Computed example of a mutant assay.
Amino acid sequence: MENRDVEKNISSYDRSSTFFYCDPPYYGLADYKSQGSKPFSKEDYVRLKECLSKIQGKFLLSINDHPEIRELYSEFNINQVEVRYSVCRTKVVRPGSYSLAIIKSGWFNENPSSPHRSLGLV
């Protein structure tokens, strides 16, 4: 983990054998700022997508389910994942509580019996 610009980080480590896990702030819910940084803007989400479109390696991006994110990442494999929140200790699934797992095209296991096929993790 590094606290650097997304483009610099990805270009520094991108190889055909590299796996990137990206977990940007939830889209459209609030401006996210870490200490001393500016908020993650709509332009930052576009820059992240453009950067991921060019990589040699693979990526998994997890983000909240939002129509603009679905449109932005439409060229990739998008899987809707049910989210269980456990902060309140009840582990209740809230209606409409979904996240997206967005995966680089061509990374899916073609074995239909694989339990991990939906996320392309095999």
Rank of each mutant, 00 (worst) to 15 (best):
M1S: 09
M1N: 07
N3Q: 06
R4K: 11
K8N: 14
I10F: 06
S11D: 05
S12T: 14
S12A: 11
S12G: 08
D14A: 05
R15I: 05
S17P: 07
C22D: 08
C22Y: 10
C22M: 10
P24G: 03
P24A: 04
P24C: 02
P25F: 06
Y27N: 05
K33V: 13
Q35C: 03
G36T: 01
K38A: 10
P39S: 10
K42N: 15
K42Q: 15
D44M: 07
E50W: 03
E50Y: 06
C51I: 03
S53E: 12
K54S: 11
I55F: 08
Q56P: 00
G57C: 10
K58G: 08
F59N: 01
L60P: 03
S62V: 10
I63R: 01
H66E: 12
P67A: 13
E68F: 07
E71K: 15
E75Q: 05
I78R: 01
I78V: 11
E82N: 06
K91C: 07
K91T: 08
R94P: 01
Y98Q: 12
Y98N: 13
L100T: 05
L100S: 03
K104C: 00
S105A: 11
G106R: 03
F108V: 05
N109F: 00
E110T: 13
P112M: 08
S113E: 09
L119S: 04
L121D: 09
V122C: 15
